[in-house]
C-alpha cells in the first residue's frame, strides 16, 4: 500500500536533490566555459542529425513517402498525357517552348526518333548534372520513364533527394513560393515533412523533392 506521507517526503527529497544537483551542474558548466574546454566536434552535429533523420524517417515515412510517390506518379502521368495530346491542342493549353530536339530526317519513324533523341538529351543532362553536383552529393540511381529522367541523389548525411528532369512544360505554381536562383525564378513548396522545388532552365524542367531540408535542393539547382 502506498504511504502518502512517504510519497510526499520522497517528492520533496527528490525535488531538493534535483535543485541542488542542478545548481552544481550549472556551476560546472560555467567552469567549463571559463576554461574554454571544447567538447564539441562536427561529428556530434552529424550524429545528432543522423539520429534525428532516423527517428523522423521512422515516424513520418508513412506519410511523406506516399506523398512524394504520388507527386512523382502525377508528374509521370502528366508527362505521358502530354506526349499523347495532339500538338495543336497542346499549343493552346501550354506555353510554347523552343523545341529541344530537332527531327532527324534519316530516321524511319519520327516518334521513335523523338523518343530516342529525348533519351539522349536526358542522358546528356544527367551526365552534366552528375558532374556538377555540389561537394558531398552523389548519384545513387537513375531511371528513365515516360520522357523523364529520375535521379536519386544522396549527400554525406544520407539525405535522399529525387530529381526529375524532363522537357519544359507549363506547371502549377499555386501554393509555391518564388525564389531567385542564378537570376532565374524557381518555385518551392516547403511542408513539415517534405519539400518540392521546381526550376526551369534551357527548356528543361527540374523537379526536386526531399524529405527534410530545402537547402539541399537549392544547393543542387544552383549548380545546374
Amino acid at each position: 500500500m502506498v504511504n502518502r506521507a512517504d510519497e510526499r517526503f520522497y517528492k520533496e527529497l527528490a525535488e531538493a536533490y534535483a535543485k541542488r544537483s542542478g545548481e552544481n551542474l550549472l556551476n560546472e558548466l560555467a567552469e567549463l566555459k571559463r576554461e574554454n574546454i571544447q567538447l564539441r566536434s562536427p561529428g556530434l552535429d552529424r550524429k545528432i542529425k543522423n539520429k534525428v533523420i532516423g527517428y523522423r524517417f521512422f515516424n513520418y515515412s508513412k506519410i511523406a513517402l506516399p506523398l512524394v510517390a504520388s507527386f512523382l506518379i502525377a508528374v509521370l502521368i502528366y508527362a505521358n498525357f502530354k506526349e499523347t495530346v495532339p500538338q495543336s491542342s497542346s499549343e493552346s493549353m501550354f506555353i510554347p517552348t523552343t523545341p529541344m530536339i530537332a527531327v532527324n530526317p534519316n530516321k524511319k519513324s519520327g516518334f521513335s526518333s523523338n523518343t530516342e533523341q529525348l533519351r539522349d538529351t536526358l542522358e546528356n543532362k544527367i551526365e552534366l548534372i552528375s558532374a556538377s553536383l555540389p561537394t558531398g552529393y552523389s548519384v545513387s540511381g537513375v531511371d528513365y520513364d515516360h520522357g523523364a529522367a529520375i535521379m536519386e541523389i544522396e549527400n554525406e548525411q544520407n539525405n535522399r533527394i529525387i530529381l526529375v528532369t524532363e522537357l519544359y512544360h507549363e506547371y502549377v505554381k499555386e501554393g509555391f513560393s518564388a525564389l531567385t536562383v542564378n537570376d532565374t525564378t524557381a518555385y518551392i513548396l516547403v511542408k513539415n515533412d517534405y519539400c518540392l522545388l521546381k526550376y526551369a532552365k534551357d527548356d528543361m524542367l527540374y523537379t526536386l523533392s526531399g524529405l527534410y531540408e530545402y537547402g539541399d535542393l537549392i544547393e543542387i539547382i544552383e549548380n545546374i
Binding site: L29, L32, I37, L39, S41, G43
Partner: peptide, 19 residues
C-alpha cells in the same frame, strides 16, 4: 551540449561513444 559531452565522456571515456 558541452556539459552533456563532459558527463558522457566521464562515464564512457571514449569521445566517439560520448558523442
Amino acid at each position: 551540449q558541452r556539459l552533456l559531452m563532459h558527463k558522457a565522456y566521464g562515464i564512457l571515456g571514449d569521445y566517439a561513444l560520448a558523442e
